[in-house]
Computed example of a mutant assay.
Amino acid sequence: MQSYNQARANAARRRQAETGESYAAALEAIRLDRLHEREGATEAVSTPVGRGPDYFHNEPVPVVLTQLVQYHSHRIAKYLYFAMDEGRWRSDFAEWQAMTLYKLTDAMAHLHLLIGTISAYLRDEGVEQYFLRRYLQVNEDQQVEAYFTPRVEEHLAGLTGRPAPEAPGIWHSVGSDIASQTGWSNPERHEALEAALHALYGTYPDDSQAFDHLPPALQDRVLALIAIMRAGASTEPSQGEGAE
């Protein structure tokens, strides 16, 4: 007979294969489901009735969603850069705390808008609330619904070429520009950021095939950046070097 822990681990692995979430997230989901079972809410929480991952396995990722992620990742990275830069030159702590938090909350606003817009897109495609809860790592449907703000609905409408739900605002225009790669969107900046992130966080050279999935031009750009970074590191003085 399996132990309780082994049975839960096996259930988590099955859920991981089904949903694509991490093992840790699947294990936590199993724990939460069993908690709800004990509270008498089994059917409402653990029985998906709409579309799940299997429905989309043979579907390509919508281009507008990858463009959406690129746009907001660029904006988030820009605000994080500003926040880091504040610490380099602000000598007045009062100014530092205000400006740093302004930049970080701007980044957070873009992240929430990005998450909400992807979730609303999936909702409109019929993805079951059960899976949205899992992907968003929340316990209740209300926590999912909280992402569907008027700003998100406006942004999604612009992204998908629909009229704005209400009077069009800035985020409808931004969504339209993301889809058309014009205006507010800046594909060259997005590609530069992608190259920089691959150069910083990719597993190359430990994994010689780490960049094989990238287009050849982007591969070349990433490898060139890695060479520059290594050259810069090799010219830095070692600790204690140059001390009198």
Rank of each mutant, 00 (worst) to 15 (best):
residue 159 L to D: 05
residue 173 S to L: 14
residue 186 N to D: 15
residue 194 E to W: 10
residue 173 S to K: 15
residue 192 A to M: 10
residue 160 T to V: 13
residue 196 A to Q: 13
residue 180 S to I: 00
residue 193 L to C: 02
residue 177 D to Y: 02
residue 189 R to F: 00
residue 176 S to K: 14
residue 188 E to S: 13
residue 181 Q to E: 15
residue 189 R to C: 00
residue 173 S to Q: 15
residue 189 R to I: 00
residue 164 A to V: 03
residue 159 L to N: 05
residue 167 A to G: 10
residue 164 A to H: 02
residue 167 A to M: 08
residue 197 L to Y: 03
residue 189 R to S: 12
residue 163 P to S: 11
residue 189 R to Y: 00
residue 173 S to G: 12
residue 197 L to K: 04
residue 174 V to H: 04
residue 164 A to P: 06
residue 178 I to A: 03
residue 180 S to V: 04
residue 174 V to Y: 04
residue 194 E to I: 12
residue 197 L to C: 06
residue 173 S to D: 13
residue 175 G to Q: 06
residue 162 R to C: 04
residue 159 L to S: 07
residue 178 I to C: 04
residue 171 W to K: 00
residue 198 H to C: 13
residue 165 P to T: 02
residue 174 V to L: 10
residue 192 A to K: 12
residue 159 L to M: 08
residue 161 G to W: 10
residue 179 A to K: 08
residue 192 A to C: 00
residue 176 S to V: 06
residue 177 D to M: 00
residue 182 T to V: 14
residue 172 H to F: 06
residue 186 N to L: 10
residue 167 A to K: 13
residue 170 I to L: 15
residue 161 G to R: 09
residue 160 T to Q: 08
residue 198 H to G: 05
residue 175 G to P: 00
residue 177 D to W: 02
residue 193 L to P: 03
residue 194 E to D: 13
residue 167 A to Q: 13
residue 178 I to P: 02
residue 175 G to Y: 03
residue 186 N to F: 11
residue 182 T to E: 14
residue 176 S to Y: 04
residue 159 L to Q: 03
residue 163 P to D: 12
residue 199 A to G: 07
residue 180 S to C: 05
residue 180 S to Q: 14
residue 198 H to T: 01
residue 168 P to C: 09
residue 190 H to W: 14
residue 167 A to N: 10
residue 191 E to P: 05
residue 190 H to P: 02
residue 179 A to F: 03
residue 195 A to M: 09
residue 181 Q to P: 04
residue 185 S to R: 15
residue 176 S to N: 11
residue 159 L to E: 04
residue 162 R to E: 11
residue 169 G to I: 02
residue 184 W to C: 13
residue 160 T to S: 08
residue 185 S to K: 11
residue 191 E to Y: 02
residue 175 G to L: 09
residue 196 A to M: 12
residue 177 D to P: 03
residue 163 P to G: 06
residue 188 E to A: 14
residue 164 A to S: 15
residue 175 G to N: 07
residue 199 A to H: 03
residue 189 R to E: 13
residue 175 G to H: 01
residue 188 E to I: 14
residue 170 I to V: 13
residue 168 P to H: 08
residue 192 A to W: 10
residue 183 G to P: 01
residue 168 P to D: 02
residue 182 T to R: 15
residue 193 L to Y: 09
residue 167 A to D: 10
residue 177 D to K: 07
residue 178 I to D: 02
residue 161 G to V: 10
residue 161 G to D: 01
residue 199 A to R: 04
residue 168 P to K: 05
residue 160 T to K: 10
residue 177 D to S: 10
residue 194 E to C: 10
residue 174 V to P: 02
residue 170 I to N: 11
